[in-house]
Amino acid sequence: MTFASRIRRVPIAFAPEAGQEAQDLFPDLPPEIRELIRGAAGCSPYLAGLLARERDWISAALTGAPEAALDDALILEGDTDSALRVSLRQAKRRVALLTGLADLAGVWSLEQVTGALTQLADKATHAALTFQVGVEIRRGKLPGQGDDAIETAAGAVALAMGKMGAHELNYSSDIDLIMLFDDSRYDRDAFHDARAAFVRATRRMVSMLSENTHEGYVFRTDLRLRPDPAVTPVCVSMEAAERYYESLGRTWE
């Protein structure tokens, strides 16, 4: 079913002039979608800005099923650090805009809304992590790992906690991650080099997701839920984490 056929409600524009300005950008869309755009932009300057910036993409996206549009928005491309940063922020804008409109119009349920935002976080985290681990592999900093290990991040894992872990992200949520790496993939003599490489990759991953540029940001990223964050590196070996939880972990952990 198309987006338009599933509209159940539209908001009333709090700022009619802003809503009308946004509506005028989309003269060829069906009237029910144009009315939704008017109400959304008239209530949310953020959505009004996204509608103007992503005008061409959202025009095409709203002619079909929102699920197909979401899949398209989540396509991430970029073979350089700067290109991937741009692609991630574009995906954030498009998913936020599509989800906001689907939410306001009653097209998606609450579970679908939070699920779409969480799916963005999952895809973005995976893309940023594997890219940065790939940088370390190509520099020869992860012993025994080749290009075939990039997709699995050479044993690194981003464990989603909080709202992301529960698939309950909202529009302003940050993401809480525990970063681990599988130390069993590395010889004992290579452990320290591997850990140092994963720490560097993790820090760059956080920058890639959190840095606020002229393109925006993806997600504020918090790593402080890891074992004993005051004294441990930002990426912890799985063995060390297991020992911590068995012997020192508090009840809430």
Rank of each mutant, 00 (worst) to 15 (best):
S59D: 13
A68R: 13
V135D: 02
R55D: 08
D182F: 12
Y46T: 06
A128P: 15
K163Y: 04
L142D: 11
G146N: 12
A154Q: 09
D174W: 03
W57K: 01
L70T: 07
P45T: 11
A96P: 15
Q112E: 15
A68T: 15
I175R: 07
A160F: 14
A73P: 05
I137F: 05
G146T: 03
F131K: 11
A166K: 13
R85D: 14
E77N: 09
A69P: 14
S184I: 01
L97P: 00
D72M: 06
G140K: 10
V95H: 05
E151R: 15
Q90L: 13
A68P: 13
R89I: 10
S109R: 13
G144C: 06
L110C: 07
A83M: 07
S82W: 02
D122Q: 10
I178H: 01
L70W: 11
F181W: 15
E67K: 14
A102C: 11
G106W: 03
D183R: 01
L51W: 05
E77G: 03
R139C: 02
R139W: 00
Y171Q: 09
L101H: 00
G146E: 07
K163G: 05
L47N: 05
M164D: 14
R185N: 12
G162F: 10
L62A: 04
V95M: 02
A83R: 07
R89V: 09
L98T: 00
G162V: 05
G78K: 02
R89D: 09
E77W: 04
S172G: 09
V86D: 10
H126N: 12
D56Q: 12
A60P: 08
E136A: 11
T125W: 11
I150D: 10
D182M: 06
M164P: 14
P66D: 01
T152V: 13
L84S: 06
S59V: 02
G134N: 08
S184H: 13
A69L: 03
A61M: 10
E168R: 15
L117Q: 03
G155H: 12
T99W: 00
D103V: 00
M161C: 08
G165S: 10
L169M: 05
R138M: 07
S82A: 14
E67V: 01
M164F: 08
G146M: 06
I137P: 00
Q132S: 06
R94M: 01
A166M: 08
G140E: 07
A52F: 09
A124I: 03
V113W: 01
A69G: 13
Q90I: 15
D81M: 12
D56K: 10
A166P: 00
T99Q: 01
R85A: 15
R53A: 11
L98R: 03
D147R: 15
D79A: 11
L120G: 00
G155I: 06
R85H: 13
L180F: 11
I175Y: 06
E54W: 06
L180Q: 07
Y171E: 08
R185V: 05
T63W: 14
A127F: 09
L177D: 02
W108Q: 04
L101Y: 00
D72E: 14
A69D: 03
A124C: 03
L51C: 07
G106V: 00
A121T: 05
A158F: 12
A65P: 09
T80C: 09
I75D: 14
A83Y: 04
I58G: 10
A65F: 05
R53I: 02
L142C: 06
D176N: 11
H167A: 12
P143R: 01
A61R: 10
L159S: 13
